[in-house]
Design a protein around this nucleic acid. Structure first.
Lengths: 204, 204
DNA sequence: TTCTAAAATTGAGTCAATTCCGTTTTTATG
DNA sequence: CATAAAAACGGAATTGACTCAATTTTAGAA
């Protein structure tokens, strides 16, 4: 069961994603018709629904790639953080934020976020939740690292802290993508200001 | 211009909201067809769209009522908070959370949240953002109150703290409504645990 | 009371996502 | 090879939100 059929399958997957990504970027998610994606990918509408449960899942596949890149970039910071709690946090969260608009437009993010709350049990909904958890975990890992180095107090509840910080950043990011005119620099400054309270509380 | 016409208008508004609320509750938001809402409210489909820009705005009107009640209930706590930072926070956020499922089901919340990110510029999208801001402001007001009483340090950045705490609670609430089996008690406990870090940082 | 312009209502029509099922392609088997 | 079962495909049909041009209702002037 791993000959021609599997190859065609992978190829069609790729073609659908490529067609969709291009269209979402160029015309926006809403404006991109399944029919157009199908034509571009040289498959039928029915086939697209054979590969993805719904339009949101196509976007989901694209979002997952993006977030996984972000997670990867974050690993570098966790392994080798700046020698200062505030800077370490700013660097990690900065990577998340700066990377975030690389492949995805704000409109695509809005749609992705909306779908993930609307259909939490769809394949994408579950994947999105898993990605959030992975990001939270990475922030927690940074604290563990900083505790090991001796920059963060040992008696801090790393789990709760990671959640608190991720949740705040995430909510700020949601507000950010909701306003087209919002700028990354302002977002980062606002998060830095909020985190100052936490940094003061946890730094040795 | 405030005779029969105004009365009929108010009456139709009410009928539409009542019909929609009942249907959303009973069959769920997705399953509730505009046609059915129209029939129940004894108006035509077109009339509904004369009163509300889209299906989401109908839900929006219901959500706004709910959140305004919550804000109202919160005012009491701010005016007269428990004499302990942790308890004061727990009481205020507790009111938000306990109230939240009074009129709205989890599915309705999911839809409302999704729509507010999907269409941030629709009437409901803007109203939802305003409600979030009002809640954040109320939490900030509680800190100001606690500072006045002498329970919270004067040098704390109240604005940043209010945002941090609201954002965290809100994100936790989003995750809560995404899982049908999640329980209120667990949600409150998790938030309490997260807030402990903040309380330690800000208490006198 | 009658008439007219403005405001509101109506429901058939449009549009795009999703479903459905008959047809075609691929795989496994003798 | 031939062939039957399984998997995947295609595209017409369905569905439900939303629009719009025609019609009805209301307010208020004559």
């Amino acid at each position: 069961m791993s000959g021609l059929r599997a190859r065609q399958k992978a190829d069609r997957h790729r073609r659908i994603i490529e067609a969709a990504a291009a269209l979402f970027r160029d015309t926006g998610y809403e404006a991109a018709k399944i029919e157009t994606i199908a034509a571009q990918a040289e498959v039928s509408v029915g086939t697209i629904y054979n590969y993805y449960q719904n339009k949101g899942d196509i976007l989901g596949a694209i979002v997952s790639m993006e977030v996984n890149e972000v997670l990867n970039a974050g690993r570098g910071v966790v392994a080798n953080p700046p020698a200062n709690v505030g800077d370490a946090l700013d660097t990690l969260l900065g990577i998340y934020i700066e990377h975030s608009l690389h492949y995805l437009s704000k409109e695509m993010w809005r749609q992705a976020m909306a779908i993930s709350t609307q259909l939490p049990d769809s394949p994408f909904g579950q994947a999105y939740t898993a990605l959030d958890r992975a990001l939270t975990e990475q922030i927690r890992a940074l604290f563990v690292r900083l505790q090991a180095i001796g920059l963060v107090r040992r008696d801090i509840d790393g789990q709760a802290l990671g959640e608190l910080m991720f949740n705040n950043m995430n909510m700020m990011f949601i507000e950010f993508v909701k306003r087209d005119e919002a700028r990354i620099a302002e977002l980062r400054a606002a998060i830095r200001r909020q985190n100052r309270i936490l940094v003061a509380a946890i730094a040795v």
